[in-house]
């Protein structure tokens, strides 16, 4: 139990620092950044205590907002992602989730990809809608969501596989 808590704290800090120091400054092709801190929300242990989960997701988003001076957009997107996660888990893993038997370290690649992709698209759509906050620029919102999502999905899946196998 203790091991899980320290693991998650470690992951929280590491992902936050990586996000604000490196990933926020990639600006591939001028504006495409990956938002890999959502890995923390994706891999948070599946428990019944969803209140803690929501709060932790909110704090993580708020910290990313603080570092990047973006008001509350990351916090809003992170909380929404945390709230909708059970639905995504049920959709992607089906029976495994019903039996509370998900171990993120050994998953089928197919269901992992669908889980990460769905979550990323939801998160990014909320993120960019709030950031641009202008209905006349819907095309720009969709464009940013699409390209950043591709970047985030590839990077997230690579990171999850790379760091997941060891355990």
């Amino acid at each position: 139990m203790n091991n899980i808590v320290t693991n998650n704290i470690f992951r929280f800090v590491l992902l936050l620092i990586t996000q604000v120091i490196i990933c926020n400054n990639i600006n591939f092709l001028g504006y495409i950044n990956p938002y890999i801190y959502i890995i923390f929300i994706l891999l948070f242990p599946v428990t019944n205590n969803r209140l803690v989960f929501l709060l932790v997701a909110f704090i993580l988003g708020m910290l990313v907002d603080m570092f990047s001076n973006s008001g509350g957009v990351h916090a809003a997107a992170a909380v929404l992602l945390a709230y909708t996660r059970p639905v995504l888990l049920k959709f992607s893993f089906g029976m495994l989730y019903e039996h509370q038997a998900i171990k993120f370290s050994n998953l089928e690649l197919g269901s992992l990809i669908s889980y990460v992709s769905l979550a990323t698209v939801i998160h990014h759509l909320v993120l960019f809608s709030l950031e641009i906050f202008n209905t006349s620029q819907i095309l720009q919102i969709l464009e940013k969501t699409l390209f950043s999502s591709i970047f985030t999905i590839i990077l997230s899946i690579l990171l999850i596989i790379l760091f997941g196998k060891r355990k």
């Binding site: 929501l54 709060l55 909110f58 988003g61 708020m62 907002d65 603080m66 570092f67 990047s68 001076n69 973006s70 008001g71 509350g72 957009v73 916090a75 809003a76 909380v79 929404l80 709230y83 709030l130 906050f133």
Partner: peptide, 26 residues
């Protein structure tokens, strides 16, 4: 969820106006 999302949303809206002394900044 509603509470946290509301807080985040109000901070976002606040950041859309110029020079409102912001609580969340770097």
């Amino acid at each position: 969820f509603l509470l946290l999302f509301g807080i985040a949303l109000s901070l976002t809206i606040q950041s859309h106006s110029y020079h409102r002394s912001k609580f969340i900044n770097s």
